[in-house]
Computed example of a mutant assay.
Amino acid sequence: MTTTSPVDGAGLLDEVEAFHRRFNAFPTPAASVAVALWSAHTHLLDAFESTPRLAFFSPGPGSSTTQGLAICGTLVPQPMMAADTSPAALLRAVAGLDGGRPTILFHEIDALFESKTRGAEELRGLVIAGHRRTGVSYRSEKDGGQQTVQAFPPYAAMAMASLGRLPEAVLTRSVVIRMHRPDPNEHVEAFRARIHKPEGHALRDRLAAWADSVRDRAAGAFPEMPDGVIDPSAELWEPLLAVADVAGGDWPRRAREACTALAPLAARASLSTRPHQTATNTQEEKNAA
């Protein structure tokens, strides 16, 4: 009889983080830790009660928010680019009516929140309500000659690229990654889809297999929070810390250090303050380096 050796979860997360760092100029190790954990948690979504939004903040042209989304897209299940997607199509996709639940990747999400159209309002509701598994969105649907109200579960993982102008309702549901322009001595590879997508997909498939092997442990986890991290940050980070704990190795410590460094960023950010002040690392980020 042959037996299958257990997957080295810590080693796999190391590889996922290294893959992200090949193509992205992260401000600190805390940022790359958070993005690696977020990528892994998308394969365990039904094990958790909530899913944090991942918000890449850009200081302007030359930063790697778009590339950050591209790398995430190679690692997550069923990536769906949603920059030009109707609310109806997105709701149907997230509800699984047109296949399995997607992972939503939103370019230039600032434009969505600045728009006054009805469609934009519906999409904003999806972004906000869909971070909890208990969230529900309602739409009026035609049923023969009548209109009926139908409930759509909007729960789905989401990563966003932003210039930093996000409403508080979104920021408090987001792990904020303030990207920066690569330093002259910082080597970052250009992402070439036809070359690098297969590498990302190989990691994605291994993440999916590992997730299946630890799903029960992740679902029953109640990870210990770092000192001073309370709701809403605690709710955001619980899935990411659970992933780190079931992976083991050095990841439980690194995850909590990242949580301590990054959790205050979303709490302090706002629509009207420091919309483009993303090129300078905060003291919390520097402490995690």
Rank of each mutant, 00 (worst) to 15 (best):
S115C: 05
A269Y: 01
V229I: 13
L123P: 11
P198V: 06
P252N: 05
S50D: 13
S270I: 03
R92Q: 13
G60S: 12
G11R: 01
E141T: 15
L171K: 10
A161E: 10
A10T: 05
F19K: 03
T148I: 15
A159K: 05
D231C: 04
T28D: 13
S162W: 00
C259T: 12
E15F: 02
R194K: 12
R253M: 07
A93Q: 13
W251A: 06
A95H: 05
L171I: 06
K197F: 08
A82I: 08
H201C: 10
G144P: 02
V149M: 11
E285Q: 12
L90N: 01
F191Y: 11
L262Y: 02
R215K: 13
S174C: 03
I71T: 15
A159M: 05
V136I: 15
R217N: 02
A190T: 11
A279R: 10
T85Q: 15
D216I: 00
G11Q: 03
L45E: 07
E235A: 10
H276C: 00
A169L: 10
V33N: 09
R178Q: 12
L37G: 04
P6I: 05
Q78K: 09
V7G: 14
A151Y: 10
T103W: 09
C259I: 02
Q78E: 14
E186C: 10
A70V: 06
K197L: 14
A70W: 04
A156T: 07
L91P: 12
R165V: 15
S86T: 11
Q78N: 13
R192I: 07
E122M: 14
I71E: 15
L91R: 09
G9R: 10
G68N: 13
A242V: 01
A218L: 01
S63T: 08
E235V: 06
S58V: 08
I195A: 15
L90D: 03
L105V: 07
A111T: 10
A88C: 05
G249N: 01
T280S: 09
P52S: 12
H187G: 06
K142D: 14
V149Y: 02
E122P: 11
A209Q: 10
D212Y: 05
L262H: 01
V127I: 13
T4F: 14
H180Y: 06
M1V: 14
R253P: 00
E224W: 01
W237A: 07
N185L: 08
S64D: 14
S86A: 14
S39P: 03
T2C: 04
V246R: 12
A267C: 08
S137K: 15
A93N: 11
A55N: 03
R165L: 15
D245Y: 00
E284G: 07
L241C: 07
G125K: 09
A263K: 03
V94T: 04
T278H: 07
T172P: 01
I104T: 14
G73W: 01
F57T: 02
